[in-house]
Design a protein around this nucleic acid. Structure first.
Lengths: 219, 219, 219, 219
DNA sequence: TATGAATGAGTATTCATTCAT
DNA sequence: CATGAATGAATACTCATTCAT
């Protein structure tokens, strides 16, 4: 784990640890606050690190939070890989829908970051960082997607990664409806607005269930 | 229509016209720039209006852009209503997928705003404004959703509005992938990143096609 | 009285009435809010008049509130004149101190405006307005001051107006201590800050009592 | 003293020095301009510091200027303490009036800030700041007031602090008459307005002289 | 490496005043 | 006279980023 608090990080491991320490701090803050409401100052304070130190590990604010999203992506892919590689036989559409709903339902931070990817996170990045990120995602998409294809009948070559992409897109799109801003949350109590009171897992499961069923029946 | 250029807007129609003039200006700016990159100064200049005038028609920046989104929503619902009320008989899943893909494919601004709804737009609003907006959406969701149910066999009561909600969520989620920030666009040229080079209509059609097929076969 | 609400003010009386209507509105607002917290919009609304109308009767915001102060000054002088001209014989120092304390103690608005005279009110005025105001004050200072001299033994020629000037200055100086801003009011609850918890009438009476006694004994 | 010009202030002393540098700049500006006419931009420029730096040392504009007033208060109390503790024997009323007039007569900035205390300075403060300020004042009021009581026969216990409070209130009240806004200064040249052409030291001395004489004769 | 003081561009919002109707 | 849209100057404050120590 490379325990360090105020010490200097000289070894590569120590540096990785410090990087992680910062990301964890950011993650903690994001549990309660919106991305837009978190300043670098806050992250530094939460990480028990000086503000300047942040910039030793991340070139920009966006890179920092993108790092968080990357981590979240990895976690998701890891889980899927485990689940998919662990089992045997074909996974029926409904089971897969359940699996996906569960994995994304649990990952609130992931969903929240996902929803900010385009509007916020992918700005102010060096080409290099953006490339690294995209490469990483593409790679895991390929791997996990392949795994997905292997465990299903209804996914044709190339459909695995694509499905994953669609799922995360849908999750990103549902998220703001499921966890709206404070004003909206308050306002949605009003009668007649039931349609807009959305629960992530319910809607996600429904839509993804239909989608997978559709693929199953078609192919 | 209350044509006015530099004149003062005294009549209700003239005021509505001026409001529209501002919204159009904002819309024009949004074609090229990100929401985050547009200052009130810019809108004022583009609308040939003083900055203070903006605040005569919109209480906050967010309200202004939310107004734009509302307009876009209305436009979408209008089109769907026309299409759905105009025809006869049941619409098969594939036809509906085509219809939806077309209507959303054409509405780039709508998609872009949709993607910013949660992260940006729904902050700094008065309860009153938020409520008005949500009410409006809920109302049209109900109407158009009902129309949808009437023209399909596979949509059960309540599924119409819900489907619309899912579609816009999916559109919002796909959008940032289809039109990423400049850095990302550049970077995606790299080989091996094909999966991430996403075209809105293609992906949307595929997913929605499957989804509707799924519903069709299930119900 | 020149009853008018939305009607036009053509006759001089009607115009004066409308002017009064505006001043009354401003006065009403000043009861609860700080001068700095009252916008021309507010005055207009309270006076049931359009904003532009305000500028038909007062050239600037400052002139409006200076008008209020002038009115308050007149009221004060009127009262003093009545009291002083009404009685007979010499007024002892203590009686005069009581009289003055009472008359200023009752005039909260006057005191509040007085405290803003220099910092705020006397800016953004045309020479003409400033002159008119000062002339008016000087005139009444002279009259009432003379009255004061006539009813006292210890005031020598010229001391009357001067005393009045000193009294209003002291009132203006005490006022912010007696009615501090909200934060301060809250904070003054803390123990050890008793010296700063000031009651206007008490302090004013004490100081003025001593002052007048001093004059009485000296002259 | 922590001499620094463009250097960074890391040590506590250096930080105090920088704070002082900012206050001095504000002070310099206040010599010619009204509080209301001084923007944070101006202070920053005058202090040769970036605007943001101001907010490293003062939370709000009000806090900055309140800091100035506090400093001025301290200076006044310091002088009084020196004068009062330095001498021997009882101070007669006239001598005390002279002393007070001199000390306040010299402190133009103090008087000007004093006159703005209520209307402007004590807004937009955190409770903490307000409390600190009031505590400080109360403390020095107590000390210097006690000193005052020790050197006089006519001040009874508790009258010392109170007298000081009255004196500064009177100074604050006279100040705008003695140094009115430009318009007024111009206008006061007119004949018949002699009463309003006020010289601080003269009026202050007269009133305070009487007041102290009154106390002397009474007690 | 780490620090945290310093920077300064960036901006939404307010509001007295004007002027077209 | 009255109205109330329109104006646009004015400004405190934030915060990502830099850089002296």
């Amino acid at each position: 784990m490379g325990q360090l608090k105020g010490r200097r990080a000289r070894s590569p491991e120590a540096k990785t640890a410090r990087r992680g320490q910062i990301l964890e701090a950011a993650q903690r803050l994001l549990t309660d606050a919106d991305l837009g409401g978190i300043a670098m100052d806050d992250v530094a304070r939460e990480a028990h690190v000086a503000k300047g130190t942040l910039y030793l590990y991340f070139r920009t604010r966006e890179e920092l939070f993108l790092g968080l999203l990357e981590q979240a992506f990895e976690g998701w892919f890891d889980e899927l890989d485990t689940k998919l590689a662990g089992g045997q036989g074909w996974i029926p559409a409904t089971a897969l829908a359940d699996l996906m709903t569960a994995s994304l339902g649990r990952r609130r931070l992931f969903r929240r970051l996902l929803a900010q990817l385009g509007p916020v996170l992918e700005h102010n990045l060096e080409d290099e960082q953006a490339l690294r990120f995209k490469w990483r995602i593409a790679g895991r998409l390929a791997t996990t997607g392949a795994l997905l294809e292997r465990r299903t009948v209804y996914l044709r070559p190339g459909d695995g990664p694509r499905l994953l992409l669609h799922l995360q897109a849908f999750a990103a799109g549902i998220q703001p409806l499921a966890e709206p801003a404070a004003v909206v949350r308050r306002v949605l109590q009003a009668p007649g607005l039931d349609v807009l009171r959305v629960e992530f897992e319910k809607e996600f499961r429904a839509a993804v269930g239909a989608l997978l069923t559709g693929l199953e029946r078609t192919n």
